[in-house]
């Protein structure tokens, strides 16, 4: 598989799996405004998925569509980071996962839209970057407000941070694919995104009166298809219909 195809899968699988997780909230959010906002976020992410997986299928050149890639691959062929498949938990856990991801996703899309040598990548990023900016603005704002809210909301946000923290390092891990893409000017070196992320996350957490966890261990594997137990369950529900009725068109 080409590096470009691999990259499009990584981007699209992140948005697909996170979109799935966020959509699980539908109708169950703590206030009506959150129901609306979460559905909107999931909708943006699914729209981005269609573009990235569409590109992956096109680059691969075997006639697989975005739907094919979403619905007919098994877990070991998924390339999302482990962070996005982490369970929703309480609203704080969902929100913290979103913020930690958005703080990587937005600068990534911004770089791609401004700098990518691959026109199709730049075009997708251009369409997605405004949505991601809005997601980041919202999630950062809520992390601040809930971190610096009541004792209970503070505790929950601190717990959520601890729960996800060791799953953030994977976003900055580089392998041969990343090296090739960086050399070709298609995508940034993931490690180069880290200082910006540290600064942004540090500022927001400080304003939220939350302590940055000291554990710098990083769980890895998602980007090369080694996932947690969670992904299989996500796929079991997501892929049920096309798998159970392979001859059907929907």
């Amino acid at each position: 598989m080409s590096a470009l195809c691999e990259f499009a899968l990584r981007m699209g699988d992140n948005t697909l799996i996170l979109g799935h997780r966020v959509s699980e909230w539908c109708g169950h959010a703590p206030v009506l405004e959150e129901d609306i906002a979460l559905a909107n976020t999931a909708l943006d992410l699914i729209g981005q998925t269609q573009m990235w997986l569409g590109l992956a299928g096109e680059v691969e050149g075997n006639g697989r569509t975005a739907d094919h890639l979403a619905y007919k691959r098994d877990a070991w062929d998924f390339r999302n980071v482990l962070l996005v498949e982490r369970p929703n938990g309480d609203f704080g856990q969902t929100l913290m996962r979103q913020f930690l991801f958005d703080a990587w996703h937005h600068p990534m899309l911004k770089w791609l839209s401004e700098n990518s040598a691959e026109k199709r990548v730049a075009e997708i990023a251009e369409k997605a970057v405004r949505e991601a900016a809005y997601h980041l603005e919202r999630s950062a704002d809520l992390v601040i407000r809930l971190g610096d809210g009541t004792d209970e909301s503070h505790r929950r946000m601190q717990d959520a941070l601890a729960y996800h923290w060791t799953y953030t390092g994977e976003m900055f891990e580089a392998d041969a694919v990343d090296g090739e893409l960086a050399d070709a000017g298609v995508a940034p070196d993931p490690a180069a995104m880290k200082p910006g992320w540290d600064a942004l996350v540090g500022d927001v957490l400080a304003e939220a009166t939350l302590a940055v966890p000291e554990n710098d261990f990083a769980h890895k594997g998602g980007r090369r298809g080694q996932h947690a137990e969670h992904l299989g369950h996500i796929l079991a529900s997501m892929q049920f219909l096309p798998r159970a009725y392979p001859d059907a068109r929907w």
């Binding site: 697909l16 799935h20 959509s23 699980e24 539908c26 109708g27 169950h28 009506l32 405004e33 129901d35 609306i36 559905a39 909107n40 999931a42 909708l43 699914i46 729209g47 998925t49 269609q50 997986l53 975005a66 739907d67 979403a70 619905y71 529900s237 997501m238 049920f240 219909l241 096309p242 059907a248 929907w250």
Partner: peptide, 28 residues
């Protein structure tokens, strides 16, 4: 919402999400 996570195509999923989001908006 019961079927959003199981919608059979990405397009159908997006449409259903948009619809359910509208309904919440109507409530508002």
């Amino acid at each position: 919402g019961n079927w959003i996570t199981r919608a059979p195509t990405l397009e159908r999923k997006a449409i259903l999400l948009a619809k359910v989001q509208d309904e919440a908006g109507h409530g508002l």
